[in-house]
Amino acid sequence: MMEAERRQDHEHDERVILLGPDDNVVVVRRRIDAGSLVRIGGRDVSQPKDIPLGHKLASRSIRRGEKIIKYGAPIGSATADIGPGEHVHVHNMKSDYTATHTLDEARARHGDVP
């Protein structure tokens, strides 16, 4: 990882990390608060919501159907067009193997655990 980090140019915010040179996502290594600007590909992008540690942001524009590349490997496909700096997750990408199970719907219906 540190090797990848050293490869990273200064196009990206220090709160994110590019793991492979061909990746189209970066990984959040320090929590990003809603409303804050994040430098992605040399441009500042405003984040509409909190992005927790370990989540992904697009490092460039990704077209619907395009593979999401992380660690230099495909980890699924985009289900929508994704702009640079946008949160990349189950709402705009899917597995090319088995569907991802989440509790998002249950949480929306019944509220979060206090």
Partner: peptide
């Protein structure tokens, strides 16, 4: 095996933690 069962080796909390797909979890 997992395709037959309808779930990947992937829990809801993995997604809360930023993992989006079984392939992504696998690479890690």
């Amino acid at each position: 095996y997992y395709a037959t069962l309808g779930y990947g080796s992937f829990a809801a909390g993995n997604a809360d933690g930023g993992l989006s797909t079984i392939e992504e979890k696998s690479m890690g």
